[in-house]
């Protein structure tokens, strides 16, 4: 029975975390996504205050859904781990402080508790009450990004790509060119880079579905396309081993 649930933003995030869990031989852990596909616009929704919610903005609603799932789906659950892209501090829920605040606010809204989560990779204990049932829970979080405290999973994947990729090198040259001509880099450059990398490694049959379900070609014929021993993964691997 699942004792730990890891909540991530998207299926790509989920596929990567599952890869790491297998690599670390971690069992009794399930993963869940805030959004079920990468096609974001399908799952955006407008909240009652008129705001369009996308990506991790929907964490409060996901945590409220978790309230029922603690009773009906995960009866043994005791640890909720939340892994979010840290994004840029300029965005509405970006950066470490705002991401922590988002998690605390989500639990306050769903369970009416002050979680007081103040740092990443550290568990806090709390009791939540759902319809007369009191459940002891531990909650922790980890934010994915680069060394400067910005970015997302794509930044990590780019760093740990195992094979050379001529297409990616061309894309980098293009990015430089775009930067020179427009004064700013290509939009979603890192995301595009990872897409090109995955496509360059995929077999023809995988490529047919690659654009729709890129997360499924992270491994090709059993070979892992990323260096899971890369030092950059040290922190997240330690976090995943937090029981």
């Amino acid at each position: 029975m699942t004792q730990k649930l890891i909540i991530v933003e998207s299926p790509n995030d989920e596929a990567f975390i599952r890869l790491l869990l297998t690599h670390l031989s971690i069992t009794n852990t399930e993963t869940a996504t805030i959004h079920p596909t990468e096609i974001e616009h399908l799952h955006n929704f407008t909240s009652s205050d008129g705001k369009l919610k996308r990506g991790k903005d929907a964490l409060p609603e996901k945590i409220e859904i978790l309230k029922r799932e603690l009773l009906i789906r995960y009866p043994q659950l005791r640890h909720i781990a939340i892994i979010l892209d840290i994004d840029t501090p300029k965005s509405s829920n970006g950066g470490k402080e705002k991401s922590l605040q988002l998690i605390n606010t989500s639990f306050l809204k769903a369970f009416n508790i002050s979680l007081n989560l103040t740092d990443t990779s550290t568990k806090v204990s709390t009791n939540v009450t759902i319809s007369s049932e009191t459940i002891h829970l531990e909650v922790s979080c980890f934010f994915v990004g680069d060394e400067t405290g910005e970015g997302n999973l794509d930044v990590v994947l780019k760093k740990i790509a195992k094979h050379p990729c001529p297409e990616c090198e061309c894309l980098e040259i293009m990015n430089e060119c775009v930067g020179q001509k427009t004064g700013s880099p290509m939009r979603d450059f890192t995301k595009q880079w990872v897409n090109y990398y995955l496509r360059s490694q995929a077999s023809k049959s995988q490529l047919k579905d690659a654009e729709k379900r890129l997360h499924e070609v992270i491994t090709d014929n059993g070979e892992i396309l990323f260096d899971l021993h890369h030092p950059f993964l040290h922190e997240i691997k330690e976090y995943l081993q937090l029981e």
């Binding site: 805030i34 959004h35 079920p36 399908l42 799952h43 955006n44 929704f45 407008t46 909240s47 009652s48 919610k53 929907a58 409060p60 609603e61 996901k62 409220e64 859904i65 309230k67 029922r68 603690l70 009773l71 009906i72 789906r73 009866p75 759902i130 319809s131 007369s132 049932e133 459940i135």
Partner: peptide, 25 residues
């Protein structure tokens, strides 16, 4: 639904935003 923890029947309310999220996702 019936809680798997207590085996009691539960009626859990979902806010309209969460119901909206659940439908979209």
């Amino acid at each position: 639904f019936r809680s798997l923890r207590s085996n009691e029947i539960v009626a859990n309310s979902l806010s309209k935003d969460t119901l909206s999220y659940a439908i979209a996702n």
